[in-house]
């Protein structure tokens, strides 16, 4: 199949890639760029495991073609920690056991990061509705939501 040449920035690094036209951004990240931290749970936009931030907007990498990402700035889980320093959300999820199997975790973290960038002080209900697009089957959401609220508090310096 004829491929398109795209250039994009992922976590601040510039990449060139050849992508098939039907290939999604998720396939491009995972299979072409070998950035496998972004997970596939459904490939239909229903689970949020592939949540990434494209040009400042939270979205599912499975709902965008790779070719559409030409020229885009993409943020993925691999760019969340700065060197050894974890993002407060990552730290909170570790400390409060907000993960069990960990497959939904990268998507949840990206979604939560987008939430806190927009609303530094969300209520529990707002957090639950914002993260409604991120399915988790292990935790029952309790510790996951608590982790996000703890991180929000820490980031506010409260």
């Amino acid at each position: 199949m004829k491929k398109h040449h795209i250039t994009l920035s992922v976590n601040g690094d510039d990449y060139d890639a050849l992508v098939e036209p039907q290939q999604t951004l998720l396939d491009t990240l995972r299979d072409t760029l070998m950035l496998t931290g972004t997970k596939e749970g459904c490939a239909t936009g229903d689970c949020g495991a592939c949540s990434v931030i494209v040009d400042g907007t939270l979205q599912c990498a499975c709902l965008m073609l790779g070719v559409e990402a030409n020229g885009a700035k993409v943020e993925t889980i691999e760019g969340m920690a700065k060197g050894e320093k974890l993002h407060p959300l990552q730290k909170a999820i570790l400390e409060h056991n907000g993960l069990q199997c960990g497959i939904c975790t990268p998507g949840v973290l990206m979604a939560a990061k987008a939430l806190l960038e927009r609303n530094p002080d969300p209520t529990e209900t707002e957090t639950r509705f914002w993260l409604a697009g991120n399915l988790c089957r292990c935790t029952g959401y309790d510790k996951l939501i608590k982790s996000v609220l703890v991180a929000a508090k820490e980031m506010r310096g409260a």
Partner: peptide, 17 residues
């Protein structure tokens, strides 16, 4: 903290796919 947690919050954990 779970030892496998670090890789799971940074995207480094290796799942089968």
């Amino acid at each position: 903290i779970k030892h496998d947690g670090w890789d799971k919050v940074t995207g480094a954990a290796k799942f089968s796919s």
